[in-house]
């Protein structure tokens, strides 16, 4: 756990999609060497929050501070430029390329005197760096020349995470990194998340699996219907407390949901179902 100054801070961030208010006045921060888990029911606004940080959705109001300075993140390029890497739920790997090809995709190294003209790849250098990167993260991939399409889900997730680390990012955002993984593969990915913390990255991870959340997170941030309902120290809270915060059980305000809220939740359910199918 870290008690340093936050690397990334969100202040009163709001975002709506037409009539649906996906985020309302959300405060959020993550420090270097800290894993913050983002939890909440479907439609709570978790993905929207990540996408706002990653530059996919602009925010309607509020401020984003990076290393203490206010910043404008209007596009994914802005986010990457600041040092914010994102691993999306659909990993976006090229199955027909090998591990080296995927790790360096879009930022290939070139070699030779005429490289700017011939654009000749420096495969030797990239392969060596790929080994270094993966060894450094203790990732269990021995053949970096194997096609990614032949690999298990856990290995693919690890390749996607390793890929996000190439630019030495300060913050790594992971959307559902263990969904669809088996037990052993989940353990590998969680171990990798812990190593990201050891290396001083600020890590934000979305997960539906509370056991996983408790295993890796330092702090747990709970969203419900776009609002921040609580920030918990993982060492001092319990499963029950988090579940109660997620569902709003025991919270009088959810006893009487207004029609718009019901509609929003219904929309969210439909939306999420759609996403899972695609």
């Amino acid at each position: 756990m870290s008690d340093g100054a936050p690397v990334l801070t969100l202040e009163k961030v709001s975002k709506s999609f037409g009539a649906v208010q996906a985020l309302r006045d959300v405060d959020f921060d993550v420090a270097p060497g800290e894993v913050v888990a983002l939890v909440g029911d479907n439609g709570a606004g978790k993905s929207t929050l990540i996408k706002a940080i990653a530059g996919i959705h602009g925010i309607d109001s509020g401020r984003i501070l990076f290393e203490g300075d206010p910043v404008r993140i209007a596009s994914p390029t802005d986010a990457v430029g600041l040092g914010i890497a994102t691993v999306y739920q659909d990993l976006a790997l090229c199955d027909n390329l090998d591990v080296v090809g995927n790790l360096f995709l879009g930022q290939e190294e070139r070699s030779g005197a005429l490289a700017t003209v011939t654009r000749q790849l420096d495969e030797t250098s990239m392969e060596r760096q790929a080994h270094e990167l993966l060894d450094n993260l203790a990732v269990t991939i021995t053949d970096v020349r194997a096609e990614v399409g032949t690999m298990s889900g856990g290995q693919r997730q690890q390749v996607a995470i390793a890929r996000s680390l190439l630019g030495e990012p300060k913050v790594v955002l992971l959307d559902e990194p263990t969904a669809a993984l088996g037990v052993r593969q989940t353990a590998q990915v969680l171990a990798l998340v812990k190593r990201l913390r050891e290396k001083g990255h600020g890590v934000v991870v979305i997960s539906h699996n509370l056991a996983n959340v408790f295993e890796v997170a330092d702090r747990i941030v709970v969203l419900r219907l776009g609002r921040l309902v609580g920030v918990y120290d993982a060492a001092k809270t319990s499963h029950e407390e988090i579940v109660a915060a997620i569902t709003g059980a025991g919270d009088p305000s959810t006893g009487e949901l207004g029609p718009e809220v019901e509609q929003a939740m219904e929309n969210a359910r439909r939306d999420d179902a759609g996403q899972e199918r695609s």
Partner: peptide
Amino acid sequence: TSFGRHIFAVGGNSEAARRAG
């Protein structure tokens, strides 16, 4: 060449290629 690598990337997963810049 990197140009050739990008052709394969677009053919394999154009969305991944786009997100890779």
